[in-house]
Amino acid sequence: MSQKVIRKISLFLFPLESATSLGLFRFFFYGIVFFIFADQNHLLNWQEVPLDLWFGRGLTEVLKSLFWQFNHNLVFRVWQISLILSAFGLFTRISTVLAFGSGFLLIGYAQSFGYFTRLFMPILWVLFFMIFAKSGDAFSIDQRLNSKKRNSFSLSDSDEYGWPIQFAKIIFCVVFFQAGLSKLINGGVEWLDGISLQNRMLFSYVWPFNSSGRLNFQFHHFFFDNLWVSTIGAFSTVIFEFFCPLALFSRRLKAPIILGLAIMQALARFTIFVNFSAYIALYIAWLPWGKIAKKMKEQA
């Protein structure tokens, strides 16, 4: 491989970014994860479930003895505190490790009883990679306490600060690409014709476990009555998901793809009643952190 290609790949995976950009991303990412998860006793309550119902898969089954032994209450407190510390950038290197470790245990445990939501997995992956990032070098309490790094804007752009945001984008694309590919493999052309999606909307509306019966019927009736809406919905869902990785390479396609996916997930909330709010923590990776940091620098 020529030097030029290696350099291009290296720049793609490890782009130059300022410490402030990464600091801002860190603050919002951990902050959002905290607001979404940390007050959820839902994660804590899984310790009440009899172990006879254990249904570990993959790493949770391999590490069964570890998952069966940890103290839930303690780990849950660690999870809450470490997310706040990570967001504000205090003891960042340690707190990000603790945030991942405790999240891994709590989420892994919660997903080992037959109920398998995939919403949390990409967030865990980002938490994992963030433990290797120097995310506390700017926009953090650590930086305030460290006299050498007190002026965050004096830290020049470096590949050390670009890769965590880029890796979060790659994780985002892996998830959506896999989802799009699953629809093509499992459903194929039949999934794209819109009938399947329309049926699912109707079923979701009447499913006794949903509270949809209390919602505005006219809104839903519009989807039940107009097949073309479902056809466009099904088609664009697969297109946006399958071609999501293009957003990593094309500046022109980035905005429509990411916006399209966001609209699709927002609509899913009200039509098939799936709450994708956890993904907000991933969407923020696509914000122009470099420009935001620059503006902050100008104002400072």
């Binding site: 898969r57 997995m121 992956w125 896999q178 999934w191 009938i195 049926n199 799936v274």
Partner: peptide, 14 residues
């Protein structure tokens, strides 16, 4: 876990 092919809602519903 934690690898997935994200198959949610991919089956044909007819």
């Amino acid at each position: 876990w934690p690898f997935s092919n994200y198959p949610m809602y991919s089956a044909v519903f007819k």
